[in-house]
Design a protein around this nucleic acid. Sequence first.
DNA 1: ACGCTAAATGATTGCGCAATCATGTGTCAA
DNA 2: TTGACACATGATTGCGCAATCATTTAGCGT
Lengths: 338, 338
Amino acid sequence: MKRPTLIDVGIEAGVSAITVSRALREPEKVSESLRERIAKAIDKLGYVPNPAASSLASNRSSIIGVLVPSFSNYVFADVLSGANSVIEKTGYSIQIGNTGYDPLTEEAMIRKFVSLSPVGLIIAGVDQTETSRNMLETVDCPVVQIMDSTDDPVDVIVGFSNFEAAAASAQHMVDQGYRRIAFVGTRMDPRTQQRMAGFESVMRQHQIYDPALFITTPQKSSVEIGRHLLAGLLDKVPDCDGVFCNNDDVAVGIGLECQRRNLSVPKDFGICGFNDLGTTSQMNPAITSVYTPRVEIGERAAQYILDRAAGGPQPDIRNIDLGFTLKKRASTLRSEAI
Amino acid sequence: MKRPTLIDVGIEAGVSAITVSRALREPEKVSESLRERIAKAIDKLGYVPNPAASSLASNRSSIIGVLVPSFSNYVFADVLSGANSVIEKTGYSIQIGNTGYDPLTEEAMIRKFVSLSPVGLIIAGVDQTETSRNMLETVDCPVVQIMDSTDDPVDVIVGFSNFEAAAASAQHMVDQGYRRIAFVGTRMDPRTQQRMAGFESVMRQHQIYDPALFITTPQKSSVEIGRHLLAGLLDKVPDCDGVFCNNDDVAVGIGLECQRRNLSVPKDFGICGFNDLGTTSQMNPAITSVYTPRVEIGERAAQYILDRAAGGPQPDIRNIDLGFTLKKRASTLRSEAI
DNA sequence: ACGCTAAATGATTGCGCAATCATGTGTCAA
DNA sequence: TTGACACATGATTGCGCAATCATTTAGCGT
């Protein structure tokens, strides 16, 4: 009852082991009749390839590594979902790693992944350590950075500009007449910092920049923290008339806290979220948010790796910017609300 | 510049390859001095083990397979997070699979995972096909079913009783005086059906069972669908006075729709969610929900696999029920609200 | 019918490691 | 001093597959 090998299948089908191997990997190089006989033998014996042996012999595993900073951040659940939908139809599989937003953990995970001779790697962001960057430059497989935008990716990057997305949101709020807009940032990972920079740039441009309006916390985002941060913010800056959040959870929390305080949204207070995870659009009033194409980013990243694995070239455009969409909703549309 | 092997390290350290291998896997069997020399050599050469070779030679990979029905269901993001927190400190890695709530996809994924000679498997639920069940019974590694409860697991099961959790919620609503309580179910996967059964059982017990109060849809849950389902429900059953949702998203959507309709919660309408994902507790009013120990389930499942891998025995209690907690909040506490 | 080429199939080898068994080395009791 | 024994280290082998090269067969024009 041992697990059958290529040799067993070969014997059953009356061919050599290598022909079976070929029939599986390059069927066009094996005659029709043999293919059928081999298929029958595989079926009969219940043969399943041994990926370890294949990997060892070919110096190439069938693993695609996906490195994300957090599983509980739903943004990455979506990315994973997109990548999976593309990969699951192939013979490849996804191995995941969680860096916990820590560069050194990330380094360790990259080292581990590189040792797998993966088909490709997907990794969030551009802010790797020098050592990490070096490993990624050197590894013999496509590497896709995601959720960000840069002219100098390791290989290619699929994402959008966090700076621009935040700037567009800020500009929208300014357009709607808000002047004392706060930035609320949780976790403060590199992408959040870029959003903060984009926000700040627009504030400065309109000469309404005020450092007192920047509220940040290293805690992870949540609806609950959003409520607390709004309370703190209004204590500290009572004349604050709006907020841009680095995350939808926080925006929802703030929206709920406004309900409780009977703070009129959008009239007296504007709210803008980030990522458009679904709840913002259903709130009362509906909350403006920046839709980011997370699922598509996962799909495109995975597809690029498959294309390269199939022999495709590195494309000319290495910065694949899928953009973002500012979903303007009631929570900031003060002009229409009057 | 080739990747160094055990032999290279051995030469560098002046020992044989197998001693290096031992130093890595069973350090206590190698003398202190050699261990140091070997460690230095490994460092100098930047040696990283080849998992494929190891797996081939030992007939045992370092992979723990986790099979979930969906990545975008945040419940499983939490499970994954819990499992990862336990596993990341070890030399093992997580390979994930998405069954898409489809038994045949699940079968295929199990087949694939089994072929990896994994350290262990974690799989959601108990409703595998006969073929799946067979493979799981046969595979030579610990298998942990999760998110459910049964006296007859494949190996062990870590979870809670969906039937009991729903029944407890229903009983609570009945205790609060609700009599025309609807069940709103999305996706209708096996666990949702168990919740429905638990709910139904309590309704029958109190002789207030009415099939018209069961609203189900194959769509996945979301805040948006929750709003729509409430609208449909109130059209169909105007005297409905409460709802038990199989999922928090739906409960939040219903809560928001009640806000919009100025339907007084909990006075005229009670709402209970499931899973307690975080937003329910922050709503106005706060929504009652059943907290399920998702992260802990992931942790315990992973820990069990590690224990078994380290030579531990199969425990006596194979049904590890971590329970649930009904978080009674304003949305159902009608007696207190008056 | 002959030789040429292309297509189909096979034989051999080694990937890097761990299982197994073999050997060396030191310690201690009698 | 000897032998028994534990402990430390090494040599050999094979895991199942794919890369490489070798061989056979089929198809074709002249």
